[in-house]
Design a protein around this nucleic acid. Structure first.
Lengths: 233, 233
DNA sequence: CTGGATCCTCAACGATACTG
DNA sequence: CAGTATCGTTGAGGATCCAG
């Protein structure tokens, strides 16, 4: 069958199976692709934002991946327009549809993750994505009107509870009701392996502001980690 | 080897981020790993089963992946025992927990898949996995007691509706009520883009047995493909 | 400064042969 | 059957360079 070069595919490798998972693997199995998609899922980014948000990615690899993702229809390139002439990359609807799969992978990966390995860092996109997964589609009481500022390392994101919904976005909050400063142990809190009281008393988190608001933060932002075992018999 | 000696890399490459998705990507981003896990999720397999079920995989790659997956705790190796001295690989509970993520990726990949590319084949594991995803956790009426035999190419799987649940397994069925023979268009049927009547009249499927049972097959085995668009504003 | 392209090196992957 | 061994190929990593 490999009679040398009838079809020479450009960069992607194929598995030769007519299978949804195989097709997905051909795209997201490329090195760095999942993390690029995660960064773009948080908010649209420029090329240089991606290089700084993905420390260690070679510039040629990033360029290749963006081109491939554009060809696959997952990412759209917004050409320079008007005053700001920066190229902006954003997910297309087809790219957004990967959301549930990325969330499921995040949950699974977080389930096997306790302490950071040496040299591992937290990025704005990673903590934003993690908190969004933890918030899920959860509904909260309508009268909760709270702004949290969350600091992990030198990264800052904010969590808003408004009109019954939760939103998580990168960057500083205006007039936070409670500032939460934590280290990697925030993962244990989200995983439900560390309760709010213990987190405070052990110093895993440091609070500044209305500390009574921490309980609902810890109770609401939870990774819904359900083992989901296939019944085989 | 690495005389620079800052960090030791065994085989896996790391992204250097304390992030669930990054951890997941380090494992399932390896070439062939997702398909190996899919095959094992269908049922435990021997080494040679995997080589035949994954046409094109280099034997050394398969050996490496199995070793890595064993080290990561996703796959367990059952050593030769008693009469049958074959090594059997199976998913561990931790490996099974990847199920929802694999399903989500399958759905997404299937959503962008219409016709097979040249040379793409259907394997027993791929069609079994696809039908299981299509069945989901769906409940059917208790009084449905039906056995389907599904043929796609030279692959045969069977679908049982019993006691309100649906099970899909590889291989031949005993006393099938309906034998369904189809080509790749079965994907359109599962995706809901081809209704039962049209599938029959256009010859996309060929039925043998109680044809009245085909309607419930087409209605029940559906890929629950929900776009799930993130509200960004 | 942004947004890449180019060049080189080496580890990972792929194909085939071979072995306990 | 269940893998190693060997060797060629390819893609990723890293540094630098270049055009707008």
């Amino acid at each position: 069958m490999q009679s040398s070069g009838i079809v020479k595919y450009m960069t992607n490798q194929h598995y030769g199976q007519f299978c949804g998972l195989a097709r997905a693997a051909e795209i997201i199995g490329q090195r760095w692709t999942l993390l690029i998609l995660r960064d773009l899922s948080v908010w649209p980014r420029r090329y240089s934002d991606l290089t700084t948000g993905l420390p260690g990615i070679p510039t040629n690899t990033l360029a290749s991946r963006l081109k491939e993702l554009e060809d696959e229809g997952l990412v759209a390139r917004t050409l320079p327009s008007g005053a700001d002439r920066s190229v902006v990359y954003a997910l297309t609807p087809r790219g957004e549809e990967l959301g549930p799969a990325l969330d499921a992978l995040s949950r699974w990966g977080a389930g096997g993750m306790r302490m950071p390995r040496e040299g591992e860092i937290v990025t704005t996109a990673s903590i934003t994505a993690a908190l969004r997964v933890a918030a899920g589609e959860r509904i909260v009481p309508q009268d909760w009107n709270t702004t949290y500022s969350v600091h992990v390392g030198d990264v800052e994101v904010h969590v808003l509870m408004r009109d019954g919904t939760i939103t998580v976005d990168p960057g500083a909050a205006e007039n936070a009701d409670l500032i939460i400063t934590a280290g990697p142990q925030i993962r244990d809190l989200l995983a439900g392996e560390l309760d709010a009281q213990t987190a405070i008393t052990t110093g895993a988190v440091h609070l500044e502001g209305d500390e009574s608001l921490f309980g609902r933060f810890a109770d609401t932002l939870r990774v819904p980690y359900s083992p989901h075992v296939h019944a085989t018999s």
